[in-house]
Amino acid sequence: MSEANRNETLGQGVGFERIRRITGYLVGTMDKWNDAKRAEERDRVKHGLSTHA
């Protein structure tokens, strides 16, 4: 590895991809979701596997 490469960095400004389901379809990034659906996704709670919540 050259000296230049040794100092090189990767990933500046690169976000994480977060795949979510919206009305049945998957969507690759939430950038394109409308405001209401973003709020809905934010509010979703996980469902427990036991028979009592």
Binding site: T23, D35, A36, K37, A39, E40, D43, R44, V45, H47, G48, L49, S50, T51, H52, A53
Partner: peptide, 22 residues
Amino acid sequence: DREYYTNSFHIPVWYEISVYDK
């Protein structure tokens, strides 16, 4: 009081409930 109405006949997404009951 939220930014969306709940989809179709779903139990609200914010409501705590078990998988089984949902």
